[in-house]
Design a protein around this nucleic acid. Structure first.
Lengths: 128, 128
DNA sequence: CTGCATCCGACCGGATACTG
DNA sequence: CAGTATCCGGTCGGATGCAG
């Protein structure tokens, strides 16, 4: 699935330290516009149902959300819980223990995002 | 440009804390398959020329790299330096001071990527 | 409610050829 | 070397309709 990665980039792994390859792996799994946002919402809100999740995140279609959730479940970040005793059937999504390991990543991203927005507002960074 | 974001998601900002919005902003700027990788290479290697950059990163086409660099320059992460006194003209890209503020993000991502790869190899995460 | 199937347009991005 | 222009196939993703 990600075998294409193993061809030419081996060269750079020797030259650039391992952070490049490690970050690449991370981005491969949790990259994209939605995955981290979904994980954050599930971590902060606990059990969330499909439509609530869609509304809370905002701007994501059912199809895309469905695909993202499947992906996240496959990778162990999300657990799908079906309450079959209800009518109609209720489905809840919850964040797994493993998704908690992303806390540091989410924290640093959130902090950077906040300070970045501040910098933009204050128009810093004309150069440098 | 990202005004669509301001419509319905205001709801969730009140409910989910600011990390969602902050992470969203971060992803908007440094998200995607290449941006962080480019920044990492420039930070580790210093001045890098276009073709070297392309080779070092691996798997990125000239067109995409060109676009990404333009983007990164616009956002103040990368500086383009032209040595006009050479023939043919030499162009180097260097990381800016501002891109250094991404260090914590890169660090946490790299660490998570490493441990994630380990977990995958050892087949952890069957459930939870 | 919780999704999946299908259609279909928009956009991403590779390949190639070309300029300065 | 350092890109840009064009072509063009593949994928992304919205809209709609339907099923469990």
């Amino acid at each position: 699935m990600e075998n294409t990665v193993e061809t030419e980039e081996v060269v750079c792994r020797g030259r650039c330290g391992e952070s490049l390859s490690a970050v690449e792996d991370a981005i491969y799994v949790i990259g994209g516009k939605w995955k981290l946002k979904i994980i954050i919402v599930l971590q902060e809100l606990g059990n969330v149902r499909f439509n609530d999740l869609q509304r809370t995140i905002g701007g994501i279609s059912a199809r895309v959300l469905s695909n993202e959730l499947k992906d996240l479940e496959l990778n162990g970040f999300v657990k799908r819980v079906v309450h079959a005793d209800q009518t109609p059937v209720i489905v809840e999504y919850i964040s797994t223990h493993y998704s908690k390991t992303l806390k540091p990543v989410i924290m640093s991203l959130a902090e950077w995002g906040i300070s970045h927005k501040k910098n933009i507002r204050e128009d810093v960074f004309e150069n440098k």
